[in-house]
Write a protein that binds this DNA or RNA. Structure first.
Lengths: 243, 243
DNA sequence: GACTTTTAAATGTCAGACAAATAAAAATTT
DNA sequence: AAATTTTTATTTGTCTGACATTTAAAAGTC
């Protein structure tokens, strides 16, 4: 663990980077204990608060965890899919909300990726996942449902579809694409008619998955994407000319 | 910005979460200045070092940036695609290396996602992106190339393919899948024969993109995936039984 | 009016202290 | 001797107060 780069300021950022490099390169392995804060401040020739700021940076990325007490300290954390998943969702959500990404662009990305899971999911989906999808479809058909709850159920439905591919890397990668869309979807007001349409498409997807018919899943997803984008266009249209 | 939750320890984590929530919810908007560290310590009733640790956590996630001097302070950062991209690559790389993800699983995810870009890329790829791909193919055919350089060029090639879809959200989502594979790929020793094969498939992809033939791109990617997985199997086989 | 100097505000860093948690060692009791 | 309790040492968590550095604006000067 060395620090060489140029910048004279932000010592804590440099130290964090040095430790991060050591972790990424494998110099520090999972569950290995880092030197204590006191030792680190000696090694890096900085004060303990500075070391602590560096460690908090790493903790924010789930790269380390800390434990108090004797034989405590900072340990290299095994980055779990769960941690990575939630980080990804947060990042993706902020990315979309801060960069004026058009609904079309986000929607295209989401459904392109989802279709990438379609074939695998058709092949591997479990009965359990299928049941989850059916349950979400049922929930979506309940009359009193708010738009937000409808969207949340939509996310659950699609998540089950993605998880059906039985590939944790895919599930992780898709997390951002699917969940980060929700705030954008929430801006749409779903009429009874449009809900009906979406539910019909969801049912077609579930049916196709049940029949393990990859082509049909793909086709239904294509239509769902087209319909969703049409809905968004209608909403935008109405906003512009609210009759 | 309030903090209510249960945990009594890790004040800085709570404060970071409170501010993070304020950003995600839109209570704090991009480029808005946060209260000064002194004011925050007043508001949250903690010391300045604790506030600073919280701010460093947020800085580690590129949620804020800080500026020194009068009229300086912490500002809500506009999360750029670039920042998100590199974070995603780091996270994905660590995720794969720490979770004993099989080569097959990672490879399947990567090529599934890449094929999701194939149709869009065939439709939209620019002459420039095509030229990049041709240049990388040429580089890959150079005799003196190390395996690492070959892999790096491979990543550049595929990145151009993904960027061809002209959808920044897709490019961002794919970043992890494509780049995080590199360390795994680096474990493969590429013989002259296997390089030849890969280059031939890359050429077929480039040709198909030039002809805007989505089907052909998809097919070539499928074959490339199959070949890559076969290569990995061969390597594993040789390790187990080194003649 | 243009330039220089001063000032004030803010982050960056440091030193030293105490609190709290925790595991291991030591002492005590059974 | 074993089990339990107490002590101790280590380590992170937090606080106080201070000084350095940067920066923009205000004040002063030519």
């Amino acid at each position: 663990m060395k620090l060489k780069p140029s910048k004279p300021t932000d010592l804590s950022a440099h130290i964090a980077q040095a430790i991060r490099d050591a972790i990424v390169s494998g110099e520090l392995i999972v569950d290995e204990r880092l030197p204590s804060e006191a030792e680190l401040s000696d090694q890096f020739q900085v004060s303990r608060p500075t070391v602590r700021e560096a460690l908090k940076r790493l903790a924010a990325q789930s790269l380390i965890r800390t434990q108090r007490g004797a034989s405590g300290g900072a340990f290299v954390n095994k980055l779990s899919f769960e941690d990575a998943y939630s980080q990804q969702v947060t990042t993706s959500t902020l990315l979309l909300s801060m960069n004026a990404v058009s609904f079309d662009t986000a929607c295209e990305a989401r459904y392109s990726l989802e279709r990438a899971c379609a074939a695998l999911s058709a092949e591997r989906r479990t009965a359990d996942q299928l049941a989850t999808m059916r349950a979400e479809i049922f929930r979506q058909s309940q009359p009193g449902l708010t738009d937000e709850a409808f969207c949340a159920s939509d996310v659950s439905f699609h998540r089950a579809l993605v998880d059906g591919a039985a590939n944790p890397v895919l599930s992780y990668q898709l997390a951002g694409a699917v969940e980060a869309m929700q705030p954008l979807m929430n801006m749409i007001t779903f009429t009874a008619r449009s809900r009906e349409e979406i539910i019909a498409l969801h049912s077609r997807i579930a049916d196709a998955l049940e029949a393990r018919d990859a082509k049909a899943v793909d086709q239904a997803l294509l239509e769902l994407e087209a319909y969703t984008r049409q809905l968004a266009r209608d909403v935008a249209e109405k906003r512009r000319k609210p009759n």
